[in-house]
Write a protein that binds this DNA or RNA. Structure first.
Lengths: 230, 230
DNA sequence: GGCAGACCATACGCTCTGTCTAGATAGTCT
DNA sequence: AGACTATCTAGACAGAGCGTATGGTCTGCC
């Protein structure tokens, strides 16, 4: 409906003037999908809905994207790029307080990214298993965080009792899950501070022996190789 | 299968004799679906596939179940019942070694349940968000574990630095995620021992400050044999 | 014999997907 | 100007899948 049925084809809707806005339609699709994702789940959105929201034709849609999932993939790439993923300085050498602050900061950054990009991230978490490309995309994304965390764990020799890589993978996916639960409003993580508190606590507890807040933990334990792990 | 196209209606396929096997068809549906889930994802299974596998008609299917998701709900209930969920003695008072052993045991039990019921649990994890009833079912299931864990945390006053309930929720969902990753073969959790090691480490580290990593690798621990990694 | 219940086969209407055709429009080339 | 090309539109289409409905058939029981 809308200004659509005014008789003639609504031509000037999009100025086909310059070359630079050549991807106009592509962007309209992405934007419309993003907006729809803020209201419904991906499986509740039909391609026809996107068509209507972006005010384009079916042909155009399939010219730019292979499928609904393909659109989601593009949105996810946008989202994580924008959140300049590398913004994970993570752990750093330093005294106990500094490590705590650094870990907590990284976790808060994650929360911020999820707050800003909730609809898209929610969608990828719910759908990455239903499409090979999405599966690869999301696993790769998680792998990025895992690799960064692994490096850090190995560098300051924390959490030496278990395989650093396994620990890093676990912490990464823990984040994925809790941020997601927060995004869909499952208590107690609907409160962002509670979320950050717990995540930080678990990170600190599994990386260094001391828990989060009480300051009784000793510094550095650089040994870290008690089992002669490869 | 296959004895289907022998011409006449295959009557005696199921003895309609007694009253007790009245639910024969219902069970055939559940069993067929379970088998199909061992091979494909739920979204790749059409109702027609279940019909063929169970060798029943469309009408019968919808007599016993409302939908594919309804079947999954029944399967999930079966699965967790069978795994006598309550089998989570979890943490118990005791010295460091005993606590470690108890936690590890509970986690191993979880791994066993997931090993036995992998197809069904994989399916519910992948689909609980796409249906209100499944959402409630799974959240309730997680709530069960969370409640048990919360009680235990409060009882022995561990992990006092954060809200016990939030911590318990986080640990529960961490398990859900890691068991799931194991079930779909994501490394390093395709190795069950690595999975149990890390989960135990994180539980210990966040419940008690002395985590499982403090240098004293005394006997209580099975050593984890340091299998390297792929 | 006749009734009721369980089940079967099949068809139906609907929604959604992805492809395809034909036509309109705008900028470009000669 | 007129032809050309790329882009986009509208809409038809086939195919899959879902959930419902209809009519027939078998079995056991009164």
């Amino acid at each position: 409906m809308e200004e659509k049925a005014n008789g003639g084809p609504r031509r000037e809707r999009r100025t086909r003037a310059g070359r630079e806005d050549d991807r106009d339609i592509r962007r309209a699709i992405l934007e419309a999908t993003r907006e729809l994702l803020a209201e419904r789940r991906l499986d509740e959105i039909a391609v026809a809905d996107i068509l209507a929201a972006a005010d384009i034709s079916r042909g155009s849609f399939y010219f730019y994207f292979e499928s609904k999932h393909d659109v989601l993939a593009a949105l996810v790439r946008q989202a994580v790029d924008q959140g300049h993923t590398a913004a994970r300085p993570w752990l750093r050498h330093g005294d106990e307080d500094e490590r705590y602050a650094t870990v907590r900061h990284g976790i808060s950054e994650g929360a911020r990214l999820w707050r800003d990009q909730a609809p898209v991230l929610r969608a990828i978490v719910e759908n990455w298993r239903s499409d090979p490309k999405l599966t690869e995309l999301w696993l790769q994304q998680m792998e990025g965080y895992t690799a960064a965390t692994t490096t850090r764990i190995e560098q300051d020799g924390s959490g030496a009792a278990v395989d650093p890589r396994a620990l890093a993978t676990a912490l990464t996916w823990l984040g994925e899950r809790l941020y997601y639960l927060a995004a869909i409003g499952v208590p107690p993580f609907d409160d962002e501070e509670a979320l950050v508190d717990v995540l930080t606590h678990i990170w600190m507890g599994s990386l260094y022996q001391g828990a989060s807040s009480d300051g009784d933990e000793q510094g550095g334990r650089p040994g870290a190789d008690e089992r002669g792990r490869p």
